[in-house]
Simulated assay, not measured.
Amino acid sequence: MLSDARSDGDGTTVPPGRGRPPADRIALRGDLRSALPDAGAAVVVTGAVFWFLYARMESGASATVAVMPFMDDAGTYWMYLLSQAFGWSGLLWAWGTVMLGLLLSGPRPARLPVSRPVLERWHRTTSLTTTALMAAHALMFAAELVRYEAQLAWAERLWAGFADTFVPGWYDSGTGRIAIPLGQGALYLAVPLGLLFYVRHRIGANTWRRLHRFVIVVYVLSVWHTLLYGTNVWYGEWPRTVLWLLQLPVAVLLLLRLLRPARRGERLGGPGGRAGVTWPAWTVRAAGRAAAAAVVVGLVAVVVSGHDGGRERTPEPPAASPHAPEPE
């Protein structure tokens, strides 16, 4: 028997009746509550990363100091270190939520420790936490820039910190001219793409699903930003190797998701077949699968060869930059 009862998005059935809050409000409130333990864990991880970066700077082993010798003072540049810590924990949470999303949208293992509704709730809560960590990463970097420009008046310092952090193309120092806009693009895409889930009843499920696929672009931009501008991964040390190794399962799951999508209408099939797939649509889908396969092969080659374009540590540290410190 059909019923107009519906789910609030985390497995809870909402009975029919008048005066009910919209489904998006119920889901968002519930997800925010469910995200509190996840956010607490993220704060703990961020604190551990901050302590690690602080200790490395104090001991003289920091790659950041090797790149920018003028930052050899952990007590002065603690906001920059906290920005780095938020960036690293944000990237870890982004990896987790992307992995969950790929598990849900593609072929899943026969046995999983939890049910699909639980996986879906984890995917949403980790997505919310990731967005918050990205915002904290940017805000702490802006705060460091405000502190760094101490010779300016307060209004000028606030504008400099805001513009260098949030205005695309404004930051003009070194590789930041490329890396900063990549990070900004990731942040500016993550917020609407993550929150569109809660208004899917207004824009339509199919529209939301098509837009949500671009979340993988947010992840790619985040990793690219880190490889270009994360001073702790510039050299061939273990953080860079770990970052590359973490991309292998993402690439493999993405390829499996493209080859065997969970939704029947997204399967490749044959052009003009019973599914009614046109030649242009079939060509685009086939090209996406080929591109994902090429990415997997490329990642394996990079990890095996050890040649990923990372910088070589120079015998003498570079001169101190007159600009603000390089961001993570």
Score class of each variant (00 low, 15 high):
G236P: 04
A294L: 06
L254I: 11
S115Q: 10
R147I: 03
A74P: 07
D308G: 08
M1T: 07
W93Y: 14
F162P: 02
L145H: 05
G40N: 05
A275T: 04
A320Q: 09
P21D: 13
V304W: 04
R285Q: 10
H123Y: 09
P271R: 00
L189N: 12
R285P: 03
S7V: 13
D164G: 12
P315E: 01
P239S: 04
L152S: 09
R20Q: 14
A160W: 03
G9N: 03
P168Q: 11
G270R: 15
V146L: 00
P16E: 15
A39D: 02
T283V: 12
L248M: 06
P107R: 12
V250N: 08
G60M: 03
L152N: 06
G87R: 00
T64D: 13
G288F: 09
G17T: 10
A179V: 02
A55P: 09
I178T: 04
P271F: 04
L36K: 08
V242A: 12
V65C: 08
G194T: 13
W95N: 13
R56L: 12
I203P: 10
R200Y: 08
A35C: 00
R124P: 04
E266W: 06
P322S: 01
A186T: 06
V277P: 08
T46D: 01
V45A: 11
D10E: 14
W170V: 14
F141Y: 13
W51Y: 15
I203T: 11
L256Y: 02
H307K: 03
S3N: 10
D24G: 15
P315Q: 01
N206F: 14
A94L: 09
V146I: 07
R18A: 15
A63K: 08
R6M: 15
E266N: 01
R289G: 15
I216P: 11
R121A: 11
R257W: 06
V217C: 06
R202C: 11
E266L: 09
L189T: 12
V252A: 10
L245H: 01
D73N: 10
G204F: 04
L53T: 00
M99L: 12
A35M: 06
A205I: 14
A293M: 01
A55N: 14
P327R: 08
R274N: 11
A179F: 05
Y219K: 05
G60I: 00
V199T: 14
L28P: 05
P16C: 14
A23D: 15
A319W: 00
P113R: 05
W154L: 14
G306H: 03
A63M: 00
V297Q: 01
L92N: 07
W170I: 08
G269V: 01
G60V: 01
Y219N: 10
A150I: 10
A205Q: 13
H225P: 01
A138G: 10
A136L: 04
P117I: 02
R6H: 11
P192A: 08
A61Q: 09
W51N: 14
L36G: 01
R311S: 07
I203E: 04
L258M: 11
P15V: 15
V250L: 07
L81M: 05
R20S: 13
P249V: 03
T64W: 02
P325I: 07
T46S: 02
S59H: 09
S305G: 03
